[in-house]
């Protein structure tokens, strides 16, 4: 069973994600800030990381993603974002935003599961 780490500072987003992922047969660990998130990932070595773009500070998510990619390059990262589409930011898998895919908030269960599946394969 694949283990997924969800890192987001919004408890409701964490709960919703956990419910959806667990119902689809994944094991979920959560963290509500970048520091705990980093520790949890280090300790449990999950198969996938789901990370929010913005936590307390505007770039928290990006910095954390960069750190993960540097130290644990093999774990795919899926990023939650609520502004990318709105303001037309062109996100891509590049050096600036080192993540593998994005999920737009509010979370749609179908989209989340589909992206998780494709990243885990």
């Amino acid at each position: 069973m694949a283990l997924i780490a969800v890192i987001d500072d919004d408890p409701d987003i964490l709960e919703a994600s956990t419910l959806i992922l667990e119902a689809n047969g994944y094991q979920v660990i959560t963290a509500n800030n970048p520091t705990t998130g980093y520790d949890v990932v280090k300790e449990k070595n999950p198969d996938l990381i789901i990370l929010d773009v913005m936590m307390d500070e505007a770039d928290d998510g990006f910095f954390l993603a960069q750190k993960f990619k540097k130290e644990m390059a093999k774990i795919p990262i899926l990023m939650y974002t609520s502004i990318s589409k709105t303001i037309g930011m062109q996100f891509g898998a590049n050096e600036l935003v080192p993540v593998d895919d994005f999920v737009e908030k509010p979370i749609s269960s179908e989209e989340l599961i589909q992206k998780v599946k494709s990243l885990l394969n």
Partner: peptide
């Protein structure tokens, strides 16, 4: 932009919760 983003977060969270209710996860 910063303020608007702050307003957006709770709405997005509520919608995510409604989504899991609607889809029958609860």
């Amino acid at each position: 932009m910063a303020v608007v983003h702050e307003i957006k977060s709770p709405i997005v969270a509520s919608q995510s919760i409604i989504e899991i209710i609607k889809k029958g996860y609860l």
